[in-house]
């Protein structure tokens, strides 16, 4: 108990005393996960919505693939990316292993099925009569699409936030492809692992508190938007 209290006190000293290392690690985490989320959303949201709306041969297989992708353990993605990016790997010539870019790649691969799958589910949850109804009311193609988006945007946002929570808290993949290099690729989660391993609990607790705050902030933002969306809808 004493250890935890001591750790928390030290954690706040690090947090509010402006410890450069701790801030750097936090910013790196945000940068990597933020960029990965942006890329995954730009691809995943349109993909999920389109998949949800369209009919084509092999659609079932595609949907099944996306859903299976949502269940792939991040650590497996980490292994795959590290093998592909390693010097003797297919993309070894890019020299990307143990860089922030490698972590972005891994996190995009983790987040993409989540964003795609959840937005696909959002579209499919819609009453099938809804589309018919708006078309029947005389809405054009674009207009129908816009109305549909309006109906599900809160769920889409939830998909994005879920993916953010998933990747910023993930440790196995970023450890493998980033290497947890101090001053280069150490992020919040790998920092917690290293500091714990080395017995430096105060720093581990400080990093954990930041991680908690970030995830809470994301879900708080989500809740606020959701409530507002409900009131206005």
């Amino acid at each position: 108990m004493e250890l935890i209290l001591e750790g928390i006190v030290e954690a706040f000293r690090l947090l509010f005393g402006g410890d450069a290392d701790v801030y750097q690690i936090m910013l790196r985490s945000l940068w990597v996960s933020g960029l990965a989320l942006l890329v995954a959303s730009l691809i995943g949201l349109p993909l999920g919505v389109t998949l949800g709306l369209s009919e084509f041969r092999g659609r079932h297989l595609t949907v099944a693939t996306v859903n299976a992708g949502m269940g792939v353990p991040p650590v497996v993605v980490g292994l795959l990316v590290s093998l592909l990016l390693s010097r003797n790997g297919m993309f070894g010539f890019l020299r990307l292993l143990y860089t922030n870019w490698a972590m972005v790649v891994a996190q995009v691969l983790i987040a993409l099925p989540l964003v795609t799958g959840l937005s696909l589910a959002a579209v499919q949850q819609l009453d099938p009569g809804f589309r018919l109804q708006i078309v029947a009311l005389g809405a054009g193609r674009l207009q129908a699409f816009w109305l549909l988006l309006k109906e599900i945007w809160v769920t889409l946002l939830a998909a994005v936030m879920a993916a953010f929570g998933g990747i910023i808290s993930e440790v196995g993949a970023v450890m493998m492809v980033g290497g947890n290099i101090r001053g280069q690729t150490q992020v919040l989660t790998t920092g917690v692992v290293e500091e714990t391993r080395a017995g430096r609990f105060p720093t581990a607790i400080a990093l954990s508190i930041i991680l908690l705050l970030l995830v809470f902030a994301a879900s708080l933002a989500m809740t606020i938007v959701q409530q507002r969306g409900r009131r206005h809808a």
Partner: peptide, 20 residues
């Protein structure tokens, strides 16, 4: 993304933030 990008760039003393 921008804040983190600029911030870590400044912290790490020149451009190598993102690329490592």
């Amino acid at each position: 993304v921008l804040a983190a990008g600029c911030g870590s760039e400044a912290d790490e003393g020149g451009g190598e933030a993102a690329s490592g």
